[in-house]
Design a protein around this nucleic acid. Structure first.
Lengths: 197, 197
DNA sequence: TCTATCATGTAACCAGTTACATGATTTT
DNA sequence: AAAATCATGTAACTGGTTACATGATAGA
């Protein structure tokens, strides 16, 4: 019955399940694969977390130890394989992640909600810096996509997604930046007064 | 010198500092304010975390207890005020949050990176569901903005940001959806084969 | 008056991070 | 052959969450 509360809650766990669909592996191999394939790091991964996650997945019955192998003098490694429950959980989680947009807590959004504490002039400068950084990010993704022209776009789709978001943010920041510059009367009146004394 | 490692790492801590700029408060009051002002929840907040964060901020010298008041028979509440170090930290963190885009780990992005595990036809359906949900979200934000026409746009800026992101995601999902529908040869060939056996 | 909900906090738990450990391989 | 880095894991710490507690007020 796989403990109600173990529901693979983080993306790393999901990735482990997904990769084990291919074939049984030991944690280290999973890590290597992740690093190889997930170049631009869509999925966060600190090597110790991997052992964590694997342990939890095993505890909840989504994966199970298949054998322990020893290669030369290196420490013994445990090979895990996906269980039926694991396959089901993977599909269920994927379906949800794709079909229902999760509420993400973005740091920039939080900062915007508190922006009054900085003086408008300074914010203008900071936004300019951000714009430059966003330009770089966008260029990086674009060139990554160009370099991978020969690979099926399906495997690049997450990068296209991120690019779309970065571009949207660029546009937003520019608009915001201009609003401040113009000093329109319906915008930031209170703000300017607050920081003028 | 306020311990190198205490650097207010989460948005809630930041919000506490920001709100204490206004006047000294006790944790519960901070919580109420957050709930009131941050309607659409840009900043995550579980009431127990508040006490956590306040304690850490105090430990690191960014805020300090000013007095303990007792109101009737209710438990005694500690009122905190911002220190000089706190004000400095607040500004430093805000500057960074605004000027340098942080790498966010989005769940949808992670899912996209693993999308091969679901069959294309199913993904198409799931994306349609997502589109409907995104429509709703966008409408909600728009009507929230309309309802607040009289308030200075500065105080709505984080909602405008989110709306921009939602709209960008809508556009992306639509494109992706169509790619799948079209069954273009440079897209998802391997994917279709994998799920046809 | 009984029940629900608000107001205010404490405490136990857990996931994920940082730090530590240690033999093997490669580089200098 | 010394130094650096890779390969593979364990253990301690910690931030944030869930669950628990308890008096006060309001609604039925």
């Amino acid at each position: 019955m796989a403990g109600r509360r173990g529901t693979v809650s983080n993306p790393l766990g999901l990735a482990v399940l997904a990769y084990l669909m291919e074939r049984p592996m030991h944690p280290y191999e999973l890590g290597k694969l992740l690093k190889e394939r997930d170049k631009q790091q869509s999925i966060k991964y600190k090597h110790a977390s991997l052992y964590m996650v694997v342990e939890q997945l095993a505890r909840d019955g989504y994966i199970e130890a298949q054998e322990k192998v020893r290669d030369g003098q290196r420490p013994e490694r445990t090979v895990y394989r996906l269980t039926g429950a694991g396959r089901a959980e993977l599909h269920a989680r994927m379906r949800e992640l794709v079909s229902v947009p999760a509420k993400e807590f973005l740091r920039f959004e939080a900062a915007l909600a508190l922006i009054v504490v900085l003086p408008p002039a300074e914010v203008a400068t900071l936004l300019d810096q951000r714009l430059r950084a966003l330009d770089e990010q966008a260029d990086e993704i674009r060139s990554f996509l160009r370099d991978a022209e020969h690979v099926d776009r399906l495997f690049l789709i997450e990068h296209e997604y991120r690019l779309a978001l970065v571009e949207a943010e660029q546009a937003f920041v520019q608009r915001f930046r201009e609003l401040i510059g113009r000093g329109a009367p319906d915008f930031g009146r209170f703000w300017r007064e607050l920081h003028s004394g």
